[in-house]
Design a protein around this nucleic acid. Structure first.
Lengths: 214, 214
DNA sequence: TAGATTGTTAATCGATTAACAATC
DNA sequence: TAGATTGTTAATCGATTAACAATC
């Protein structure tokens, strides 16, 4: 199905559509949704909704709209959410552990996305060997092997800036293909690795721009 | 200076340039940087670097490049980073407190950005009145007044999905103009309010897409 | 059937890149 | 001066929107 390379802009919107569909499904009753309603709730124009979906197939019925449950299932499949994703988290500081607890656990209660943190890593000898919510904290030196053995493809980095690049290389060495990086540094990695920067400093600086004339 | 409306795409890159300039400045020695080097380190083409900067003035010298310290100062001014920004954080759960501690405090050690969390808010009676890192946790019912009195313009929301919209409206009522929202929901707010969604579920779902053929 | 809405093509809009005269 | 690099204009590229025939 992925014959043409589909642009990042399109992929970025698919989870947005999923969120809207999930909301509708949760509310029950409504089984059909038009590109107008879907677009409105996702903050996207109806034409763009249709165009985005059309990249992957014909999911709607002319004159009728899209069947909510069917479209959800198709999007789940397209985004690979219909299988488990094993994740390791590197940097068991307060942010890392908060993410491990608050976010990930939470996501799994929605059973629409099976994200599973199977490893925690840190360099602090005081933390290594300890348990966190049932997951053992391991030394960063073991990452590559662990990731390789467990076929982990996703990782979250919450280590300090200085070690982020090094950690990323170890992860990739073990086969990781997607990284969510919280360290405020641009990681220099091979093109086939997908890095997503969650650098909150950048976001705040950007927001500050818009506050001038108030 | 903000005569033309400058596009979001441009603004998004400015903090990236700042980060590179900060790095260079920290390393000392080098006082000049070309659009080639700056672009390379920021992951942007040289032509685009020059075009972005040209929106705001003529900061470079032909045949020479840009003076690092001068450009930093100009960008700081453009992004309004040359003054204090008061922030409130709503939702004193593990993610909220981790952000308060790990991120924000940390940013302020770089003295290039004066982000100051002056208020924490939660609805849990057990938490209200307690101190966190010297900041009192207050009831969400007091937000609007607090924000108004202290002229707070920025806020971080880490409350559960159900209350995010309501909290956002209270903040705006008090004069907040920029919100960093961690709740996985699209906030429906006036156009003049700048909302930045840090919905990690969306990001993970997006990343999952790229993991299929491995 | 009549009304509604899809999927898709063509038109538009905006952002990035290429190119180069100006000039340090 | 000769070499380098800016600021800027024109060309290109890509993404979004408008429009509409197809059809449920």
């Amino acid at each position: 199905m992925k014959l043409d390379k589909i642009s990042d802009a399109v992929i970025r919107r698919l989870p947005l559509y999923m969120r809207v569909l999930d909301d509708i499904a949760r509310k029950g009753s409504i089984q059909l949704v038009s590109s107008y309603e879907l677009g409105d709730k996702a903050g996207v124009s109806p034409a763009l909704v249709r165009k985005d979906l059309a990249w992957f197939g014909e999911f709607g019925k002319q004159g009728v709209g899209y069947e909510v449950d069917y479209l959800r299932m198709e999007l789940r499949r397209i985004l690979n959410l219909d299988r488990e994703h094993k994740v390791v988290l590197v940097g068991a500081g307060s942010l890392g552990t908060a993410l491990a607890r608050y976010n990930i656990k939470r996501y799994n209660t929605d059973d629409d996305f099976n994200l599973n943190i199977i490893g925690l890593f840190d360099n602090d000898p005081q933390k290594i060997g300890k348990n966190y919510d049932g997951i053992e904290i391991r030394s960063i030196s073991e990452i590559t092997q662990f990731v390789k053995e467990n076929k982990v493809k996703m990782a979250i980095i919450t280590v300090p800036v200085e070690s982020a690049q090094e950690v990323a290389l170890k992860l990739i060495d073990g086969g990781v293909g997607a990284i969510l990086n919280f360290a405020p540094v641009k990681l220099d990695l091979p093109e086939n690795v997908h890095v997503l920067t969650a650098d909150l400093t950048l976001e705040f600086k950007r927001l500050a721009y818009y506050l001038d004339d108030e």
